[in-house]
Design a binder for these strands. Structure first.
Lengths: 237, 237
DNA sequence: AGTTTCACGTGTCAAACGGACACTTTTGTT
DNA sequence: AACAAAAGTGTCCGTTTGACACGTGAAACT
């Protein structure tokens, strides 16, 4: 690039208005029976004391995915959780305290991996999906959007497993889908469908917490899934 | 809000780094047989003379959707085209001339509505989807992503009609789907499926450009579609 | 020791759907 | 009058989906 074009470029870019770029994460968890949402009681201004999604600002040396992972780590102490971009919230007046553009993400978290001390530090609390308190700004809209996306996505991608312990039973998995989709499923049909994909490894162990007979534990075979995907396979529940 | 909290808030926000926020649009069109992409030959710095997606910067008084619509209008002279957010491109080094965060959109345009003079002003040109020239920055990645999204989306949403004239024939519609999906479809099965949804109004007129016999023209019944959607209907091709 | 209880685990049938497949119709051209 | 070229139509079969009911295993209780 010549010195002249470089000058023109600097001029062009410098005419533009810069914006504060933030992100907010809708964090889903599953707790035996219920789909839950992790919210924080803001211990800082603005909106101190109100319930809110966890969020943060983009920094100079990272991309938005890294920022989302960092913010998530900050709250939960965990890294590498399932994260998916939702959409950009950019209305000029969405944050009444100043113009902030926010990228919404949703994350899926295994609640058995949670670090309760860490969560308490941020005044974080799990809420049942149908008992969400009033939220700041447009966070409620973000939650609605995330839930809609999760409901669509879980039918075609094996993301449910991100919400369960590494070992889980078929009835547990079914309850998860029922909680996400908000419908009851037939257990024979559910079992037939999920097992027919042959992506679950049956273990010898049983989980006896929920019945005297106990239910066999399974593990999701990620390697096999990745292999099948390469061959044109589609996951479907 | 008290004066004290306001000050805290200003302090909090002002510690953050602002970024240049842009958008780029992948514009699809359909031309009887081929799926096409509208690109511009940049007549301005940076990267003057190279092929690129149409883009622009977010302005202070608009949200990102308005910005996308504005940018699209600037190029094509058209407003209200189908627009869908893809994802944010935010790698620190994605634009080698400075840090710019870009939201990618894809748009669907009826090529029979195009204003050729307007397009020439911007050195815009249609390219077949498999003959795309080298593009600046990460625009090629955006195009790939848009194409993947379009392929998924067109199976479950009636967006194909955004690429066809208001009146179209079934064979035309089929060619469109074949062009998007890159596969051949059986015309009996296609016709059966598309007509079984009863969303197409058959007109008395025929389009005789492609055969002596001529093919009946149809119109997509948007009102009926919206009504059915409210009743839980799902579009599927 | 026998009985109860509770959730786990299993198979069948009918209807709907999806995909393969070939011939007739229409009408302009020669 | 014959031809060419694309439009338009129906059937059959295999697969998938959804509805549906009973036996099993193991702890808890008597």
């Amino acid at each position: 690039m010549t010195r002249e074009t470089y000058l023109t470029m600097v001029e062009y870019y410098s005419q533009q208005t810069p914006f504060l770029l933030a992100l907010d994460v809708i964090i889903f968890g599953f707790d035996e029976e219920e789909l839950k949402l992790l919210l924080i009681k803001r211990g800082f201004e603005p909106r101190k004391g109100q319930w809110s999604l966890m969020g943060g600002f983009l920094k100079e040396d990272e991309d938005m995915e890294q920022a989302a992972d960092r913010v998530l780590h900050q709250l939960t102490g965990l890294s590498g959780l399932y994260l998916e971009q939702l959409r950009l919230y950019s209305k000029p007046d969405r944050d009444s305290d100043g113009r902030v553009i926010s990228m919404a993400y949703y994350a899926l978290m295994k609640t058995d991996h949670q670090d309760s001390e860490q969560l308490e530090k941020h005044n974080a609390q799990w809420f049942k999906i149908d008992e969400i308190p009033e939220l700041v700004f447009d966070h409620r809209e973000m939650v609605n959007h995330a839930l809609a996306r999760l409901r669509r996505r879980c039918k075609t991608q094996p993301i449910g497993f991100e919400l369960l312990p590494d070992k889980f039973t078929i009835p547990q998995l079914q309850k998860l889908y029922e909680a996400i989709l908000g419908v009851e499923l037939d257990k024979r049909n559910f079992r037939k469908k999920i097992l027919s994909m042959e992506l679950l490894q049956k273990l010898e162990e049983k989980d006896k917490r929920s019945s005297r007979k106990g239910a066999f534990l399974y593990r999701f075979d990620k390697e096999k899934y990745d292999r099948l995907i390469g061959e044109g396979f589609s996951f479907a529940v």
